[in-house]
Design a protein around this nucleic acid. Structure first.
Lengths: 107, 107
DNA sequence: ATTATATATTGCAATATTACGATGATATAT
DNA sequence: ATATATCATCGTAATATTGCAATATATAAT
């Protein structure tokens, strides 16, 4: 009891849910928006900009990383994150397909 | 501590997160897919088809309803659910915009 | 009125998520 | 070597989610 019964559902359903879960927190939405607006990698102003503690931001970044959305490279002292464009497009397509496959007939 | 600090974020960020949260469970993805594949309203085969208990399915339907994705009408004995097309399109657009606004330049 | 059927609500236990202080690891600067 | 800065990890408290049994509600049929 209490835990999601993933084994009941299809791989695709679980996959979409997993991605959606990452977007299901405003901090992660904000992080992704901020990174995507930068011309290049960001080297964490995130803590100041978003207003959550450093460990919390780190945790959220990790969630985003888990679904392959972040590429990280070291550049001097700071770890620089940017969005993995290929993966981003994959997710975009996943959501696009989900939203497109809806029947027009209804009550 | 423990609860999401929604007041830190913009309305749009919270809105996207709220919608994503609904899609962040495979049961709700499955429910939406099933309803959208029907020609007309469905009158709950959901419990049998998905394999969760009736109260659990009811709860999930309620989460979906909360973001305005379901229209329900009584038709005979059974409550029939179908997807609100207008709202569906709105959400589709919300995600589309989110995924489109990403910068191309990166490391 | 009684019964059968479908769905909602309540209450609760198991588990997951969110957030942060304390601490650790690593790299640069002095 | 020591200090400083940046980010990760650990531990833990607060809160949220998931799932179901039991119960309530509502309509339809008898």
């Amino acid at each position: 009891m209490g835990a999601t019964k993933t084994y009941i559902f299809s791989t695709k359903q679980n996959e979409l849910a997993k991605i959606a879960k990452v977007l299901a927190h405003p901090a992660r939405v904000a992080i992704l928006e901020y990174i995507s607006k930068q011309d290049a990698c960001i080297c964490t102003d995130l803590v100041d900009i978003i207003g959550l503690s450093q460990p919390t931001i780190s945790q959220h970044l990790n969630e985003i990383k888990k679904i392959g959305l972040l590429k990280g490279t070291f550049e001097g002292k700071n770890l620089c994150y940017c969005i993995d464009q290929e993966r981003w497009k994959e997710l975009q397509e996943t959501f696009h397909l989900f939203f497109s496959n809806i029947n027009r007939n209804c009550c």
